[in-house]
Design a protein around this nucleic acid. Structure first.
Length: 471
RNA sequence: GGCCCGUUCGUCUAUCGGUUAGGACACCAGGUUUUCAACCUGGGAAGAGGGGUUCGACUCCCCUACGGGCUGCCA
């Protein structure tokens, strides 16, 4: 069932913390936001949540932008720095103070930590109730204070979530969160709300680790009289063992997938399908994904990464790709993987051979491996199995073939006639002479069609390789 | 501890009270073939457990188990 139409242009955002690489789960979150906005003619914004000055680095920001760019997720406008908006956040905090929606809390962190530890030890609730909530201003000491949200004490906060449904929180479970620290810097809880509202974000699509936060954040929206966005909390991605995805599962950074040579289109398709469905659709283009993607198609349970399926999807996208685009992406892969670039000659022969390679490969390393017949130069050194195929009888056949090939018209039909006749003349099936041909042309027993190889490398090279092998 | 979310084949999922519970990946068998891949045909494979509600529950409600998240002057 499709989502109900939204009355205004859709604005979504991806808001990563620049504290490391772009996590594969984060990439999927970004992808969902991108699909939702792009599929509805809306805007997709990027905000870097760099308010944690200790852990945020420009390198991490650069890595995130690189990852998104590789995945093909383009954002509108410049990425917003959350840290750069700290004065605006403080302004809102003071506005809340003025409205009586927040209060000055003079409790020190040490005090609070000690209180919480005691509460935990005694098995009491660890929710901190500041003694300053209703304090008389006359009693305010002359020290630093944090600004705390004056959360409603009774009743409940209801989060209407497009994925999780209606989620109710007893307000007694939510304490007065700090919105502005005693050093004057904003907390995340305040900053997200202010930024989302100022950026005009209409739909907040993010990991469900934020579901509880949504209730708190909603209190800020309410306190400021702002319209609450549409929430969509999506389940996290788990490792193949069903546990939370972590480094011990292997690749968790998006750039590792790029380095492994997965094509971006396949990656997008796989990630889109992970936790979202549109009937039985499995393999689709990004244009299709944009037109189909909706919040109601998102599942509520965490999905596990399955490399086999990733590979299968990638293989299908590789086969669907246009040769020129595929070659370009392959070259980008080589650069990203730190491998030597293709020479112009190699690029040319590779592009001409893609038609017979791309439907047999799932990743770029695999594609390159299968392209060895085209990339290699004489003399072709046969591997062990290929060497066995080049026995004396086979070499004799190869030798007898060369004069005919020299005079042949270089088309598949003509070659087929020559090779079939040669097989018949030797009382062999075609398969029996294909093996030594593969060995001579590629040095391997597993290759594309012998005709395709001959057509790609051309007459002179074919004859030369056969002569090499027959010698 | 408290609160919140989740649980359909091994995996990703369809199903939105009535289906022989469907598809895809993976796996197995056969076919095709010029090796491999691809492709074709067939096969095994699932509603966590227990209570309700209902003429009828995978679907709605409750409990339990298991998994996950939150519980910071981190984001």
């Amino acid at each position: 069932m499709a989502d109900a139409p939204f009355p205004r242009p859709v604005v979504t955002r991806f808001a990563p913390s620049p504290t490391g690489y772009l996590h594969i789960g984060g990439a999927r979150t970004a992808l969902f936001n991108w699909l939702y906005a792009r599929g509805r003619g809306g805007r997709f914004l990027l905000r870097i949540e760099d308010t944690d000055r200790e852990r945020s680095t420009p390198e991490a920001t650069a890595a995130i932008l690189r990852g998104l760019t590789w995945l093909g997720l383009d954002w509108d406008g410049e990425a917003v720095s959350q840290f750069g908006r700290r004065h605006r956040h403080a302004e809102v905090a003071h506005d809340m103070l003025a409205r009586g929606a927040a209060y000055r809390c003079y409790s020190s962190q040490d005090e609070i930590v000690a209180w919480r530890e005691a509460a935990r030890a005694e098995g009491r609730s660890t929710l901190f109730h500041s003694p300053w909530r209703d304090a008389d201003p006359a009693t305010w000491p002359d020290g630093p204070f944090a600004i705390r949200m004056k959360a409603p004490r009774g009743g409940e906060t209801i989060v209407e979530d497009a994925v999780q449904g209606t989620v109710r929180f007893d307000n007694g479970q939510l304490d007065d969160m700090v919105v502005l620290r005693s050093d004057g810097t904003p907390t995340y809880m305040l900053a997200v709300v202010v930024d989302d509202r100022d950026m005009g974000v209409t739909h907040v699509i993010r990991g469900d680790d934020h579901l509880n936060n949504a209730a708190r954040q909603q209190m800020v929206y309410d306190a400021m009289g702002w319209e609450v966005p549409v929430w969509a909390h999506i389940p996290l991605i788990h490792g193949p063992d069903g546990k939370k995805l972590s480094k011990r599962h292997g690749a968790v950074g998006l750039e590792e997938y790029q380095a492994m040579g997965y094509p971006a289109a396949g990656m997008r398709n796989y990630l889109t399908r992970l936790g979202w469905s549109h009937g039985d659709a499995e393999v689709f283009t990004s244009a299709q994904a944009m037109s189909w993607f909706d919040l109601s198609g998102i599942g509520r349970s965490p999905a596990r990464l399955d490399f086999r399926k990733l590979e299968n999807i990638c293989g299908q996208h590789m086969a669907m790709a246009e040769d020129a685009a595929l070659l370009q992406e392959l070259q980008a892969y080589l650069a990203a993987a730190g491998q030597p670039a293709l020479s112009p000659q190699q690029a040319d022969v590779l592009q001409r051979s893609l038609y017979c390679l791309k439907d047999r490969a799932k990743t770029f390393p695999e594609l390159i491996d299968k392209a060895r017949f085209a990339l290699a130069t004489r003399p072709i050194v046969p591997d062990e199995a290929a060497a066995r195929a080049l026995d004396s009888v086979s070499r004799g056949i190869l030798k007898s073939l060369t004069p005919q090939l020299q005079g042949a018209s270089w088309t598949k039909d003509a070659l087929e006639v020559i090779l079939s006749e040669a097989a018949a003349a030797n009382g062999l099936g075609f398969g029996k002479i294909a093996a030594p041909l593969r060995a001579a042309l590629a040095g391997r027993t597993v290759t594309p069609s012998v005709y395709d190889m001959m057509l790609v490398i051309g007459r002179d090279e074919t004859v030369a390789r056969l002569q090499d092998a027959a010698a």
